[in-house]
Simulated assay, not measured.
Amino acid sequence: MNLTQMCHFYFEYLQIERNYSRYTIESYQFVIEHFMNFMQEERISSFRDVSYPAVRLYLTQLHKEQLSRRTVARKVSTLRSFFRFLMREEYVKENPFMLASLPKKELTIPKFLYEEELEKLFHVSDLNTPLGQRNQALLELLYATGIRVSECCRLTMNDIDFTIGTILVHGKGKKQRYVPFGSFAHDALDTYIQNGRKTLLGKANDACNVLFLNSRGKALTTRGVRYILSEMIEKAALSIHISPHKLRHSFATHMLDQGADLRVVQELLGHEHLSTTQIYTHVSKEKLRSVYMTNHPRAH
């Protein structure tokens, strides 16, 4: 097989055997194509000919591009997995990326919204219109549950249980989890489903079981969600950037600030490793320090 065929074979493996999402596979594809461009520049015609010195040269090129340590680590990790697959298929004899050390990641504290900022957002939608009802339900649910935007767009009417106030979330790697939601999200969802959603659904020729619909009655996309949130920021006249992930960060941070157990937050967020959730404790520690420095008479 040539390089392109081998890559296609690998992407099929990620989709079928590993259950990776389309977004994850596309990111892998981008990294491998970037490395193949490097191979072409260095006149390396086969994956078998990739040596450790070639890998070192590639890492030097990444450094010259002034990429973050996190980005470099992700590229190395992706290519290491790819060559591990090539070894399994007996296409190469060794994995040159196994010798490459991953750069230590910078500790980036997640950005979140303060409760006062969120409060302004919760009052910008016109609840007398179908789109306003949808936007309110979308915002309330994202903040109430901390789910990813991709998970939100996959929700169907069957995934909501109003009797016990939970949603069934279809997460990464086809893993499922139940996440509760509170009274504000309950009321916003109920209003949207009973009124606005029916109006939007009437604009489409075919029935759609997806929870959140666009103005044409079709399933709302992740890009659509980001656009809606940007519009809400403009209406609230806030000079901040908002994304669905920032609402997820806000959910986790506020939960921990109010004393929630770290493992409970891990379960709600759908994190596989506790270490991924622990980054939010740094935000809480920073808040504790800020409150201390502001209020303790001998802090200064």
Rank of each mutant, 00 (worst) to 15 (best):
residue 233 I to S: 03
residue 229 L to T: 07
residue 191 T to S: 14
residue 171 G to A: 12
residue 265 V to S: 01
residue 245 H to E: 08
residue 171 G to H: 14
residue 284 S to P: 00
residue 230 S to M: 13
residue 101 S to H: 12
residue 164 I to W: 15
residue 219 A to Y: 13
residue 175 K to Y: 13
residue 250 S to E: 03
residue 59 L to D: 07
residue 117 E to L: 06
residue 45 S to I: 05
residue 185 A to Y: 00
residue 191 T to Y: 12
residue 220 L to P: 00
residue 34 H to Q: 13
residue 230 S to V: 13
residue 247 L to P: 03
residue 268 L to M: 15
residue 110 P to D: 10
residue 44 I to S: 01
residue 261 D to M: 05
residue 27 S to C: 06
residue 194 Q to L: 15
residue 179 V to P: 00
residue 255 M to G: 11
residue 14 L to T: 04
residue 249 H to K: 09
residue 298 R to F: 05
residue 100 A to K: 03
residue 156 T to G: 05
residue 2 N to K: 08
residue 269 L to A: 13
residue 76 V to N: 00
residue 135 N to K: 13
residue 258 Q to C: 04
residue 255 M to I: 04
residue 144 A to E: 06
residue 22 R to K: 12
residue 64 K to M: 12
residue 76 V to D: 00
residue 113 L to M: 13
residue 151 E to W: 01
residue 44 I to H: 06
residue 65 E to Y: 04
residue 14 L to V: 02
residue 146 G to W: 01
residue 27 S to Q: 12
residue 140 E to Q: 11
residue 147 I to G: 03
residue 66 Q to M: 14
residue 90 E to W: 12
residue 232 M to R: 13
residue 132 G to Y: 11
residue 133 Q to L: 10
residue 126 D to T: 14
residue 73 A to D: 14
residue 105 K to P: 02
residue 63 H to L: 14
residue 261 D to T: 07
residue 264 V to A: 05
residue 277 T to W: 02
residue 180 P to T: 14
residue 4 T to L: 13
residue 291 V to A: 14
residue 241 H to Y: 05
residue 90 E to N: 15
residue 49 D to W: 09
residue 279 I to V: 15
residue 211 L to P: 01
residue 248 R to C: 09
residue 200 L to E: 01
residue 56 R to E: 10
residue 77 S to W: 01
residue 108 T to D: 11
residue 128 N to F: 07
residue 123 H to P: 03
residue 207 A to D: 08
residue 9 F to I: 10
residue 55 V to A: 06
residue 251 F to S: 00
residue 117 E to M: 08
residue 283 V to C: 02
residue 275 S to K: 09
residue 256 L to M: 09
residue 24 T to R: 02
residue 241 H to A: 09
residue 90 E to C: 11
residue 162 F to H: 06
residue 260 A to T: 04
residue 224 G to Y: 00
residue 17 E to F: 10
residue 120 K to R: 15
residue 169 V to M: 09
residue 232 M to I: 11
residue 235 K to R: 15
residue 45 S to F: 03
residue 202 G to H: 13
residue 237 A to E: 15
residue 147 I to Y: 01
residue 68 S to D: 14
residue 39 M to I: 04
residue 243 S to R: 12
residue 213 L to A: 10
residue 96 P to Q: 07
residue 219 A to T: 12
residue 67 L to D: 04
residue 175 K to W: 14
residue 55 V to S: 00
residue 104 K to T: 12
residue 217 G to F: 01
residue 55 V to M: 02
residue 168 L to E: 07
residue 204 A to T: 11
residue 189 L to Q: 02
residue 228 I to W: 04
residue 10 Y to K: 03
residue 82 F to H: 08
residue 299 A to Y: 08
residue 176 Q to V: 11
residue 231 E to L: 10
residue 226 R to N: 07
residue 246 K to A: 06
residue 135 N to S: 15
residue 106 E to S: 08
residue 207 A to C: 03
residue 81 S to G: 15
residue 118 L to T: 08
residue 213 L to G: 03
residue 268 L to K: 07
residue 98 M to D: 11
residue 66 Q to R: 15
